Simulated assay, not measured.
Amino acid sequence: MDNQNDVIEQQLFTLLRRTQAIHIGTASGDVELERSSYGILCLLADEGPQRLGAIAQTFRLDPSTITRQVQTVVRLGLAEKSVDENDRRASLLELTELGAAAVAEARDHRREMLDRLLAAWTPDERAEFLRSLQRFNATVEKWIEHGTPT
């Protein structure tokens, strides 16, 4: 590799592959969550009911893609659509009790796996990793929102 950015790019791709393995390896419970379904359900758990357009914008996906993914979580009984009282033309998506339980169980299982994966790391190493990951994500967000990472 020529420089650090080459290695970083390679490591990001490796992380992407490993993240998929973690997703598959942390499936548990009665409901098998696809990665896209898990993302939508976590958004609803963290931020409450969402308009479909807001979900599409959050994930930077075409609304038709989000519509298909939302249909899946609704069909599984993990979320339900309702009319947005502020704009009756729009729909809101919110978690059902089953969806909230599925997210909680999946998150618990993933956090247990992270505990095992990072068991040999010191608290300082974990804190450094967390700070760097948060900074990287914030930089990417600025780039997406403003076209510049600064």
Rank of each mutant, 00 (worst) to 15 (best):
L52H: 02
D46K: 15
A102K: 05
F59A: 05
R68G: 09
T58N: 13
S82Y: 01
E112A: 07
S36D: 14
V74G: 05
R110A: 04
A21L: 03
S82R: 01
A27Y: 10
D46E: 15
L16D: 11
S91P: 01
G48H: 09
I24Q: 05
L43D: 13
Q20D: 02
R111F: 07
L15D: 07
E105V: 06
R111K: 03
T65I: 12
T72E: 14
K81I: 00
I24H: 09
Q71T: 10
D108H: 06
S28N: 15
L52V: 06
R17P: 02
V74Y: 06
A27W: 14
Q69D: 13
T65N: 14
D30A: 15
A101G: 08
Q20P: 00
E112S: 05
L98K: 08
G48Q: 13
T58H: 11
R18M: 06
A27F: 14
V70M: 12
D87M: 12
L33S: 03
S28I: 14
A102M: 05
A101N: 12
R60I: 07
V73E: 12
I24T: 06
I40Q: 07
E94N: 04
E105I: 00
V70Q: 08
I66C: 04
S82N: 01
R68C: 14
L52E: 04
Q71R: 15
E80T: 01
R89P: 09
R110S: 03
L16F: 09
R35N: 13
S37E: 15
G39W: 13
V103S: 11
E94V: 02
R75E: 10
V73C: 11
I66M: 10
L52T: 02
K81Y: 00
V103P: 10
E94G: 01
T67G: 12
G48C: 04
I22F: 00
Q71C: 14
R60F: 04
L52I: 05
A45R: 15
A102S: 07
L98G: 01
S64K: 10
R75T: 05
T26N: 13
D108Q: 09
R107Y: 10
Y38N: 13
Q69F: 08
T19M: 07
T67H: 15
T14F: 13
D30I: 15
L98P: 00
R35C: 12
E97R: 06
G99D: 03
L33G: 09
R60P: 01
I24L: 07
L76K: 07
L43V: 11
S82V: 02
A101V: 08
L15S: 10
F13R: 13
V73S: 11
H109G: 01
I66P: 00
A56R: 07
E112I: 04
F13I: 08
H23T: 00
R111I: 03
G29H: 09
R60T: 04
A79W: 01
A100D: 10
V73Y: 11
R17G: 09
L98S: 02
L93W: 02
S82D: 04
G99A: 09
Y38I: 08
G99S: 04
I22Y: 00
V83H: 03
F13M: 10
R88D: 15
G48M: 06
K81M: 02
L76S: 04
S64N: 06
T67S: 14
R17N: 11
G77T: 04
A101R: 11
G77I: 02
L61K: 03
L61S: 05
I55M: 10
Y38S: 12
